[in-house]
Amino acid sequence: MTSELSTGTATEPPQEAGVRTGRRPGARLPAYLRPARPGMVGHYLSLAVVWSLLPASQRLDGASLATLLAFLLGEVCLVAAAVAFDDVTGYRGGSDAANHGPDAPARALARKPLPAGTLTEAAAVRFAWCALVAGCLCWTAALVWVPHRPWWAVLVLVAAAAVVVPQYSWGLRLGYRGFQEVFLAVVGWAFVLPLFGLLTGEATGPAAVEAFLFGLGPVLVGVYSDTHDAEGDRAVGRPVAACLLSLNGNRRFIGALSVLETTAIVTAPLLGFCPWWFPLAFVPLKATRVLQFTVGMVRGDVLRGRLIGIRAHRILVVTLVAVNLAMTGLA
C-alpha cells in the first residue's frame, strides 16, 4: 500500500516453471516475510502520530496503549495481505518480472518472491487470506476495549479491512479503476483519524490536518515508483498518473502534490487548527521535498527520488510528533 503496490493483469504466469523448481529448501519463512514488507514502516508510523496527538494524561493509559498495540498489529497484517494479493496479481500479469527482473538491476528480483521462485502462487494466496483474517481480528479486538466508538471511525475501519484492502488488486481490483494516488492518501488518512476518534471520541482540526499530511507521505513515494514502472504498468493497463500523463504532465502532477502538502501546512494556522509557528517546524521537510523533486524529476533519478521520499515521510512523522508534544505538553 505504498509504492510497493505494483500490479499487473491477471494472465497466465510467465515463469511458472521457475516457481516449481527454483525454491530453495528452508527458504519458506523469509519468502513469507517478503510479502509483509517488514522494512517498509511508513504506514505503521501513524501510531506515533496518533499517540502524540492524545492528551498528555492519556498517553500512558493502559487501555489506550492496548488499543494502539492491537491497531498496529492489525495494520501490519492488513498491509501484508494487500501487498501479497498485489504480488500475486503482478506475477500473473508479468509486470513484476518486467519491473523487478534482470533488466531492472536497481530493484532486486528477490524482493518479489513469486518471480524469484522462493514462494508458490498458492502459498502467497494462502498467506494473504490468513493475514487479512488476522488483521480483522486484531482490529476487532481493538474495537472491543476502545473508550469510544464514533460511528464514522468504526465505519472507516470496517470498510478498510473488509472492502478496500482485499479489493485493491484482488476481487474488484480497485487499483485498476484509476485514482490509485487518492487511494494511497485515503489509506494513510484511515490509519490516523479513525484511531484518534476511537481513543478520544472526536475528530479535531489538528488531527484532520495531520491525517491529511500523513496520507500524502506514501503518495509522494508511490508516484516516483510509478514513474519508474510506467512502461510495465502501461503494458498491463494500470491507470496510474505516470501512465496517463505525458512526462512533463507527470512532473507537474508530482510538483502539485508537494505544493498541496505545503498549502495544508501553511493553511492550518490560518484556520485556527495549529499555532502560528506550525509551518516553521516543517522547513526541513520542505527542503527535503525540493531535493526529492530535483533528484527524481529534474535529474531523472526516480528511484533515488523515491528513497528520498521515504526519508521525507519519516521526517514528516518526527516533525508531527515533536509539534504535538510541544502543543499538548510532554506530561
Rank of each mutant, 00 (worst) to 15 (best):
residue 141 A to K: 03
residue 215 G to R: 05
residue 170 W to L: 10
residue 121 E to T: 10
residue 171 G to H: 05
residue 243 C to A: 12
residue 128 A to N: 01
residue 159 A to E: 07
residue 143 L to K: 04
residue 184 L to E: 14
residue 224 Y to I: 04
residue 152 W to E: 05
residue 156 V to R: 00
residue 211 A to V: 00
residue 188 G to L: 08
residue 205 G to R: 07
residue 166 P to S: 08
residue 232 G to I: 08
residue 190 A to W: 10
residue 151 W to T: 14
residue 218 P to K: 01
residue 134 A to G: 09
residue 181 E to W: 04
residue 168 Y to V: 10
residue 136 C to I: 15
residue 191 F to L: 14
residue 235 A to L: 09
residue 158 V to K: 08
residue 133 V to I: 13
residue 159 A to P: 03
residue 127 F to Q: 15
residue 217 G to K: 05
residue 135 G to L: 05
residue 204 T to V: 01
residue 139 W to K: 06
residue 194 P to I: 06
residue 233 D to Q: 01
residue 177 R to G: 12
residue 189 W to F: 14
residue 139 W to E: 00
residue 193 L to G: 02
residue 122 A to C: 03
residue 185 A to G: 15
residue 187 V to G: 08
residue 183 F to R: 13
residue 217 G to V: 11
residue 143 L to S: 07
residue 152 W to T: 04
residue 211 A to K: 00
residue 217 G to R: 09
residue 153 A to G: 06
residue 216 L to H: 08
residue 212 F to H: 10
residue 207 A to Q: 02
residue 221 V to T: 13
residue 237 G to F: 01
residue 156 V to T: 12
residue 134 A to R: 01
residue 225 S to W: 09
residue 230 A to Q: 12
residue 168 Y to L: 11
residue 233 D to K: 00
residue 222 G to H: 11
residue 204 T to A: 04
residue 166 P to Y: 00
residue 222 G to F: 06
residue 235 A to M: 01
residue 228 H to L: 07
residue 208 A to N: 13
residue 139 W to C: 02
residue 139 W to N: 05
residue 206 P to N: 02
residue 144 V to M: 08
residue 190 A to C: 14
residue 172 L to V: 14
residue 201 G to L: 04
residue 192 V to T: 07
residue 129 W to Y: 13
residue 242 A to Y: 01
residue 120 T to D: 15
residue 173 R to C: 10
residue 185 A to L: 14
residue 164 V to T: 09
residue 174 L to N: 06
residue 160 A to V: 15
residue 190 A to E: 04
residue 212 F to K: 01
residue 170 W to C: 12
residue 216 L to P: 04
residue 170 W to Y: 12
residue 137 L to H: 02
residue 234 R to F: 00
residue 122 A to H: 11
residue 146 V to M: 14
residue 188 G to W: 05
residue 121 E to F: 08
residue 238 R to F: 07
residue 133 V to R: 12
residue 238 R to I: 10
residue 150 P to Y: 05
residue 228 H to S: 13
residue 215 G to V: 01
residue 208 A to T: 11
residue 223 V to S: 02
residue 164 V to Q: 10
residue 132 L to Q: 14
residue 195 L to S: 02
residue 240 V to M: 07
residue 128 A to M: 05
residue 189 W to P: 02
residue 181 E to K: 06
residue 174 L to Q: 06
residue 193 L to S: 12
residue 236 V to S: 15
residue 125 V to P: 07
residue 194 P to T: 08
residue 142 A to L: 08
residue 201 G to E: 03
residue 228 H to Q: 12
residue 241 A to F: 06
residue 182 V to I: 13
residue 205 G to S: 02
residue 119 L to F: 03
residue 153 A to D: 05
residue 217 G to N: 12
residue 157 L to T: 03
residue 146 V to P: 05
residue 136 C to R: 15
residue 201 G to C: 04
residue 127 F to A: 15
residue 125 V to K: 10
residue 127 F to C: 13
